[in-house]
Design a protein around this nucleic acid. Structure first.
Lengths: 243, 243
DNA sequence: AGTTCCATTTTGGTATGACCAGACTAACGA
DNA sequence: TCGTTAGTCTGGTCATACCAAAATGGAACT
């Protein structure tokens, strides 16, 4: 039995390119290649590591695909510090395809409900003055745009974003962004009317009040109702477009 | 934004390879290339699409990196139907690097707490007989292995997995798997002792009972305590290895 | 016939070398 | 000084070649 000298792993990628990939991964992680720095030219890497350009290109492509660097068509690739945002970006493709299936959207939406319910419950027990004042601000901005469809949409999202930010966990805003990105396409087809906006604003108010009142059960209740309404809307659209 | 392969720009992604990527993406999605089917040989693709092998390989590499196909070193790549599992796989690299940083592990762990609290609350209000009997089964298996460190660890994970499965949302088991994968490395270093196992088992029992009693508040309380204990353990380890 | 084993063919991995076109740079002329 | 332009740099694509491991099919054996 022939054994590779080093790899204990299941030889996943390509031996050489994979190794180079890990090399650069390490250099990025260690800060040797700081955020924003362009990678050396391919031919220089070729020379420095004694590899073929083929291998170098594959490694770079892999770095790009994994979101570690940003490679525009004819420019040098640029190191891109990883964030939960970029992490969620890289799954975008896969998730989008999952959403095409049967109950994909429903499942993702349910996840969102679960998270937002938890967020509003937590907010109701832990929010501090500043959190609440930010939420109030968002709420007022929301009210001010009831008759402006596009702006209302933005302030709606902003209100929810504040909820995610109030968690104090930097992962959650990234998740919010991901939800928006993935669920938006199903959402925007909805015909919005001022009455609809009015209802949504009232839901937001109810959530805000429940948090203000430090009543997690109420916060959960109104959050569920709010999202359930939203789902009904989405569902109507989905039923109509995919019978 | 990451260069999604669907850029409308004139020249954004790699023109040729990207196009091929989308072609295969479409064929996989449409079922023309069903799950488990190997891709055609590179040279055949070259011939069929009139492209160079370089381009074909880059496209295949991209498919592989995005998790749409599984490419082992010298085997034909195999179509891999996307699942939330594979989606989370593809972020593994990035997440792992994020965990190296400052409060990365803490943040991820907090996410887990939030999710599991929500899960146990929901279970307490919605679990049906079968759910509860599965959980009981896992609990008993857990108890039976208190003096077997490795097996206890497994049954511990299994107990939590049931909680995730009880949600009925297929995304959640994938998330559980991701948590395990990402947090495990920090976990396994913990010296486990039977006393420790006994405590964990008692926590599991408390969670089970709260669900059985349909008491979401109690379920939340004991879940938080259980995970908080676990965190203390992890934290000790982290403090010791990274002072 | 069924199984084992080996030689041949496929096929993926790597290496070269070449050429193009867009981006970059520096010298040149108004 | 500033805008233009020619030359260079660099990534994208192509064609070819070779190697080693995998797949394949048939010969040899039980």
């Amino acid at each position: 039995m022939v054994n590779s000298p080093d790899d204990s792993h299941v030889d996943s990628g390509h031996r050489a390119a994979d190794e180079l990939f890990r090399t650069f991964e390490g250099m990025i992680q260690s800060g040797e290649l700081p955020d924003g720095m362009p990678l050396p030219p391919e031919r220089e890497i070729v020379e420095r590591y004694g590899l073929s350009r083929t291998v170098v290109r594959e490694a770079i492509l892999a770095l790009s695909n994994k979101g570690l660097i940003e490679a525009r068509p004819r420019f040098r690739p640029v190191v891109r510090k990883p964030s939960f945002d970029t992490a969620l970006d890289t799954v975008g493709n896969v998730v989008n395809r999952l959403l095409e299936e049967e109950s994909g959207v429903k499942n993702l939406f349910d996840m969102r409900v679960m998270v937002e319910v938890a967020l509003s419950r937590n907010a109701a027990t832990q929010a501090n003055r500043e959190d609440i004042s930010r939420l109030k601000e968002a709420l007022e901005a929301n009210e001010a745009e009831i008759y402006n469809m596009d702006r209302f949409f933005e302030t709606d999202i902003q209100f929810h974003r504040i909820l995610y930010e109030m968690s104090g966990n930097p992962i959650l805003p990234s998740i919010h962004k991901a939800y928006i990105t993935w669920l938006q396409p199903n959402w925007v087809k909805m015909p919005t009317r001022p009455e609809r906006n009015q209802l949504n604003f009232e839901s937001h108010t109810a959530i805000y009040n429940a948090i203000l009142m430090r009543d997690p059960d109420e916060a959960e209740l109104v959050t569920r109702k709010h999202l359930s309404d939203a789902w009904d809307q989405i569902n109507n659209i989905l039923m109509r477009s995919k019978p």
